[in-house]
Amino acid sequence: MAKGNFFRANKRYHRVFWPLMAAYVALCFGGSYVINQGWVSGTVATAAIAIAVAAPIIGVFLVMLRLVEETDEYTRLRQLKSMVQGALFTISVAVVIGFLQLFEVVGQFWTFWFGPIFFVAWGLAQLRHHFWGKTV
């Protein structure tokens, strides 16, 4: 496949992204249901389900990184930058909450929340370009 083709790269991305999202939603509800019904017990089996639910998200990251490689150079830089800004925000929040935990200011924190935090920060970083003109 020719590198640097925005449209073809996008097509290849969406062809994998949407099935992965559908799988995520199905696994998310299915996994929770199976566990709540008590059909599955035991640490290993439950852990396997948890990892299975997380797997499509990891797949999304892989396909996103592939998109970044395959798309045109301008889009590549833009996408990388917004991912970096999203990651920077997420890691900053994690470090803050981490130290607050170490110093016993906050108790248990659901690790899961850093997922949505990252995706929202990433999305906002992408939108930022639409509000403040000149990018990259």
């Binding site: 948890a50 997380a54 998200i57 990891i58 990251f61 997420t90 659901w110 899961f112 929340w113 997922g115």
Partner: peptide, 9 residues
């Protein structure tokens, strides 16, 4: 973030 999702679930 992948690790976050695994640990999170």
């Amino acid at each position: 973030v992948s690790a976050v999702f695994i640990v999170g679930f």
